[in-house]
Design a protein around this nucleic acid. Structure first.
Length: 316
DNA sequence: AAGACGCCCAACCGCGAAGTG
DNA sequence: GCACTTCGCGGTTGGGCGTCT
């Protein structure tokens, strides 16, 4: 089947949008209570653009709920964490960061976060260590953990869809707190499934079918193990305005700390890295303030010992 | 001061999924 | 089930801008 062109390209404008075009597009969408068919929008609105270009401009720039300004450290942490689970599924990741677009997150990843991981000796795709000396921390993902990652990936995607749909009716206020982000994830099915898994409900992953289907492009839970401590649990991340040398030193320092920590805990305690990864994911600190979780510990049915232990590991 | 270089990000391209008749 | 359209996503690009030499 041949691919239909997105529009008749003759006579259509390309390149940067002018303020006038922006205004026309915004006015049209406001007046019509939505964009309707993107394909017919430019014609109806009187724009010399293809529908695709209009959609992109709207979703990435003109949408009223878009959050401007640089990413916060917490947002960056969340992006890294979600990337470890979802891989390059920017739209799904963006759905967990209100006001941020997939394009923005993709750019952030490609320009900052990826380099930071590389700099720390981690493969930006798998989030696993790339150098041979890191074997002590490179725990191969078990079929169980790989399946979990795949499973959570599918759930996150579904949630992202719901989130997008519901946001049409209940737009997220720009400037929600970081706790809001994590509470939302925590209270979602993703959080629930992690809680269940941590409580010992591991039977869902035991079947040969599960194992056979466990290959995933979304990264592994062992990857999360390796990334959470330096990046998510770190008290400081090299700022984007730091120069390359400083950044690399900082990353190197984290890598060394991480490896040291791994050596210390390479005993049976970390034998099943997947469980530890899940624990880490459950309780990594944000600005050392996770009190909102601890306060409601009973509600989430998470044993305090688990929080304490993994927090300890994370802070090593 | 000016050219070279590198970074950032808005926008484009092409593919695949979903929707429709 | 098929043919076709529309939409959304992820990868990539190129121009603007800041920094370095």
């Amino acid at each position: 089947m041949g691919r239909a062109p997105c529009c008749d390209k003759r006579g259509l404008k390309k390149g940067p949008w002018t303020p006038e075009e922006d205004e026309i597009l915004v006015e049209y969408i406001k007046k019509n209570g939505g964009h309707g068919s993107w394909r017919s929008l430019p014609k109806l609105a009187g724009l010399l653009r293809c529908g695709k270009s209009c959609r992109l401009r709207w979703t990435n720039y003109l949408r009223p709920d878009i959050k401007r300004g640089p990413f916060t450290q917490e947002e960056e942490k969340l992006v890294v964490q979600l990337h470890g689970i979802l891989g390059n599924r920017w739209a799904s990741i963006a759905a967990q960061l209100p006001g941020r677009t997939d394009n923005e997150i993709k750019n952030l990843w490609n320009t900052h976060l990826k380099k930071r991981l590389v700099c720390m000796g981690l493969d930006p795709q798998t989030h696993e260590p790339v150098n041979s000396c890191s074997t002590t921390i490179k725990a191969p993902a078990s079929p169980t953990t790989r399946h979990m990652a795949q499973w959570e990936s599918a759930r996150l995607e579904a949630e992202a869809r719901l989130s997008r749909e519901s946001s049409l009716f209940h737009p997220n206020p720009v400037g929600g707190t970081d706790s809001d982000y994590f509470l939302r994830i925590w209270n979602s099915e993703v959080g629930e499934s992690f809680r269940k898994f941590s409580m010992g409900d591991k039977t869902l992953c035991q079947s040969p079918v599960s194992q056979a289907s466990s290959s995933t492009k979304c990264g592994s839970m062992s990857a999360i193990t390796t990334e959470i401590c330096p990046i998510l649990g770190g008290s400081s991340i090299a700022g984007s305005n730091q120069n390359e040398d400083t950044e690399c030193k900082s990353c190197k320092s984290y890598t060394e700390e991480m490896m040291a920590a791994s050596d210390c805990s390479s005993s049976d305690e970390l034998e099943d890295s997947s469980e530890n990864a899940l624990q880490l994911l459950l309780d990594f600190p944000i600005n050392n303030d996770m009190s909102f979780l601890e306060e409601d510990l009973d509600m989430y049915a998470l044993p305090p010992a688990m929080l304490t232990e993994s927090s300890f590991i994370c802070h090593l």
